[in-house]
Design a protein around this nucleic acid. Structure first.
Lengths: 344, 344
DNA sequence: CTGAAAGCGCTTACAG
DNA sequence: CTGAAAGCGCTTACAG
């Protein structure tokens, strides 16, 4: 009626219907690719859509249909390389499926905070992806409503996930095993481990892999150095480790930690890799450009994010029977920061 | 009616109304903190809300009221430190205001891609924050519908933003000026600049600051080395710069670039800071732990993200007259990577 | 202070 | 193949 009027309102399905001389019903069929529409009608509708610049309201779609075409990722962090890459992978896969992605960060592992965040996230969204590498994430995964579609991005689990839960992971247990084994094969009698904060109360996957490698080689298992996530944590750990001349090889839970360890060793006058070999985890972009370049385990985080989304998408659309699966296998990238120990 | 039934449906405003013996109307008033509700009624409603575990549907709210309580950030990247930190800042401020945040990444600066992304983002959302540090972001900012609430996170603009646009920035022009000045004051006769890709066709803010500092000091302005964002770009630039013995100081558009430059210099046998001083931009977390520790400009990205959200929030709620404003001033963090040139 | 009506822009059965 | 009706869960005037 108001075709030539210049109201700012977005054209609705009804405006399109009027313009095309059909019911809004039929417009709905056309935009949903419903087969039973005469092609002449379809064309008329599409032309009207084009002319009016119609865009279907995602909000109305969500309200009327119950499917929201969006997921939100719940994470304790957005800046660390692994987290940011997972997020990027999720977004990439979601975009291809015409899904939106929301992000909600967990400020702490505090029960109340986590519960509030999980609720908020679950409120207006089809499904949830929670990055559960840390205590906050693990708590969130546990706190999520059982009938909300959720997939967790987790460390290699010791046991398969509960059957009502979908998880995705890379085999970093195996990766830690191999990295440690590589160091031992170089002649090191021992490998120390500087751990990232574990999400679970039990031994983390990386820790387990490292420990197993030492045991398999008949080497003593030194105490794990527990630290935070950032380079300053690695620095603190490295300062302590530097005082022990027996320490000739250090595996770190991530690259930032490894950089901190290398710096502390440097300041203590112990050279890397001359006196001590250092290995990181994640293969952050700058790790190949520090001096010495850092030997590290490359993890396909964005692939992990894509998998997480695909899994969730399957769950939401019930299209294919979905199964938890692990992503690309980790790969040890050998660079300058490791060498045989002096005593050889 | 079905109070004891165990349907899985979330309780609605109507269920609450029935339980409290009022109209759904009144429930709406209560959850919106409308003043004109008798406190006895209010209490009854609140009790019902509590008991039923009612949570207001954000979708219905958005559809009925037109305000969506969410914003989306449009960005070309999620992993670089600056971008990730801006995103984190936005999320933090949004969470405090009970807003959701969506993220949409721009795969390329290609016109079609950008247009599609902007449309998608603008579809189901209250407002848009676009990170416009790069060509894709700048294109997105330009492509956004003029009557969609948008705030841009931009480089220091040469001219004030168009009056219908809200921008936020840190004064990195000034920061580049100071960093360059500091290098000159150390005795360097010249400072080269390795630039990040500029969003605009014109000279970027950082480039302008650097250039001005050289001019003010009467130094020659060498050609800008144009590179990408990552350390490998810095490495490429550094390799070229290393061949010129006249090069004694290099300012880089970001820390990753700086690391790449330092690595290339190292491989070329030129020591940092002995032969060449290197300064970065951003103060990424690891920059204080590489060797030599990196002198860099600290930028308050998360503060910038918070400002961006606040600005947008004001725009959306029309609560306060909002004005574009710049965030915390950048600060030069002097570390080991710079020194007076050899010739002194 | 509170309720009955209409509507936001869609979809989902139900008819024909 | 297409339309008329009802509804998703809220809010926004309009009455009283």
């Amino acid at each position: 009626m108001n075709v030539t009027g210049n109201t700012r309102r977005q054209p609705s399905i009804r405006d399109v219907a009027t313009a095309a001389g059909v019911s809004h019903q039929t417009v709905s069929r056309v935009i949903n690719d419903h087969p039973s529409v005469k092609s002449a009608t379809r064309e008329r509708v599409n032309r009207a859509i084009e002319e009016l610049g119609f865009r279907r309201s995602a909000t109305a779609l969500a309200l009327a249909s119950g499917r929201s075409q969006s997921v939100t990722v719940l994470t304790a962090n957005t800046t660390h390389h692994g987290y940011a890459s997972v997020l990027q992978g999720v977004e990439e896969a979601a975009r291809k499926a015409a899904y939106g992605v929301g992000i909600s960060v967990l400020e702490s592992a505090d029960e109340q905070t986590v519960a509030a965040a999980v609720q908020r996230a679950g409120d207006s969204v089809g499904g949830l992806i929670v990055i559960a590498y840390d205590p906050a994430g693990v708590a969130a995964l546990a706190a999520a409503d059982p009938d909300l579609p959720v997939v967790g991005v987790v460390e290699t689990p010791a046991d398969p996930p509960p059957h009502d839960r979908l998880w995705v992971w890379t085999d970093d247990r195996q990766a830690a095993y191999e990295a440690t084994g590589h160091l031992l094969s170089l002649g090191h009698r021992n490998v120390h481990y500087v751990a990232i904060p574990s999400g679970t109360r039990r031994v983390s996957a990386r820790t387990a892999g490292w420990q197993r490698a030492l045991e398999d080689a008949g080497a003593a298992v030194p105490e794990v150095v527990h630290e935070g996530w950032g380079p300053e944590s690695g620095y603190a750990a490295g300062s302590r480790l530097a005082r022990d001349p027996e320490v000739t090889a250090v595996l770190c839970g991530n690259d930032d930690l490894a950089l901190g360890v290398m710096r502390a060793l440097h300041e203590a006058g112990r050279s890397v890799p001359g006196d001590v070999s250092v290995v990181g985890f994640d293969d952050a972009p700058h790790s190949a450009f520090v001096t010495p370049t850092l030997t590290t385990v490359r993890l396909d985080f964005s692939g992990l994010g894509r998998s997480a989304f695909d899994l969730l998408h399957g769950l939401l659309t019930r299209s294919t029977p979905v199964k938890p699966h692990s992503a690309a296998v980790p790969e040890l990238v050998v660079r300058e920061s490791i060498a045989p120990p002096r005593h050889l």
